[in-house]
């Protein structure tokens, strides 16, 4: 079939990307990756056969590809129920720490980190928090650092915020103009955005809370295990790990290190230090 991408071609493209740009996409679920390659070729109006050539010779083309390859589905207060559950079960525990370090792994364009900052702000924890928002994709990270969200999405976010139990004027957290809304600087002050690749990079700190929602579903089992291992190593004793609704830790090698705090919302906790 014309529009198909042979396994060998896929492998060659991944090799090129690995060698030239040090991105290892080998751990991503193959079917989904191939579909995105094919779709990207259509968008870019490039024959599939030429994909490898362009990737090899054009760094800008590659970063465009990377933009469309990585999944950028995110929103503020996605799954409002999660944030309600989180406030009740996790926040009181986090409150016990003098400094709270939070890692949003695979933060996309930062919406979840902003939501978390609002939640922490409303509960008086934000000044003590350091929120690290990382993503594989540099242009996502740049967007997260800018803190500007598309205006058209704000209605949905408002509803999400209200359902998540937000107690204030959501409109007090942003300034809207043109086609964007910029999140308040004070909220973003303690958010640090940076590029981090779960497939290749090591941990960079110790955290009381790691959120990695709806990222692992795009990974193969081996990469899932790597990421979960990274999280397990990066969490303090008694730290929390949050995964997406369709992701589970139970089948991984690290299941024993975590106890489920809230199963439906995939909130897990590491063993506290024996006292």
């Amino acid at each position: 079939m014309e529009s198909e991408l042979a396994i060998s071609e896929m492998a060659e493209i991944l090799d090129v990307i690995r060698a030239r740009y040090s991105y290892d996409l080998g751990g991503y679920a193959e079917g989904s990756l191939r579909r995105r390659f094919v779709r990207f070729a259509q968008i870019a109006n490039v024959p599939l056969a030429d994909l490898k050539y362009h990737i090899t010779n054009d760094a800008a083309f590659f970063s465009w590809l990377l933009d469309s390859l990585t999944v950028n589905v995110t929103e503020m207060f996605r799954d409002p129920g999660f944030f309600r559950a989180f406030r009740e079960t996790v926040l009181p525990e986090l409150d016990k720490h003098a400094v709270i370090r939070i890692w949003h792994a695979g933060c996309s364009t930062g919406e979840e980190a902003f939501s978390m900052a609002i939640l922490l702000h409303e509960n008086g924890l934000l000044p003590r928090c350091r929120i690290y928002a990382t993503d594989l994709n540099a242009s996502n990270v740049e967007k997260a650092a800018q803190g500007i969200l598309p205006l058209a999405k704000m209605k949905q976010y408002t509803t999400n915020y209200q359902q998540a139990g937000g107690a204030h004027d959501f409109s007090g957290y942003y300034t809207a103009r043109y086609d964007g809304a910029i999140i308040d600087r004070e909220l973003r002050r303690n958010i640090y955005c940076s590029v981090h690749n779960l497939a290749t990079d090591a941990s960079f700190n110790h955290f009381q809370l790691i959120l990695c929602r709806n990222v692992l579903i795009y990974f193969k089992r081996a990469l899932q295990n790597r990421a979960l291992g990274l999280f397990a190593d990066s969490l303090d004793a008694g730290g929390y790990l949050v995964l997406g609704n369709n992701e589970s830790i139970s089948t991984s090698a690290f299941a024993k290190k975590f106890a489920a705090v809230d199963k439906p919302w995939r909130i897990y906790k590491t063993e506290p230090l024996p006292s």
Partner: peptide, 21 residues
């Protein structure tokens, strides 16, 4: 959505831009 009185003008304008977009 709701907005608290007394209304902050800038906040109201932002809010309107969101809901009129």
């Amino acid at each position: 959505d709701y907005i608290t009185k007394p209304v902050n003008n800038q906040q109201l304008l932002s809010l309107l831009r969101v809901w009129l977009s």
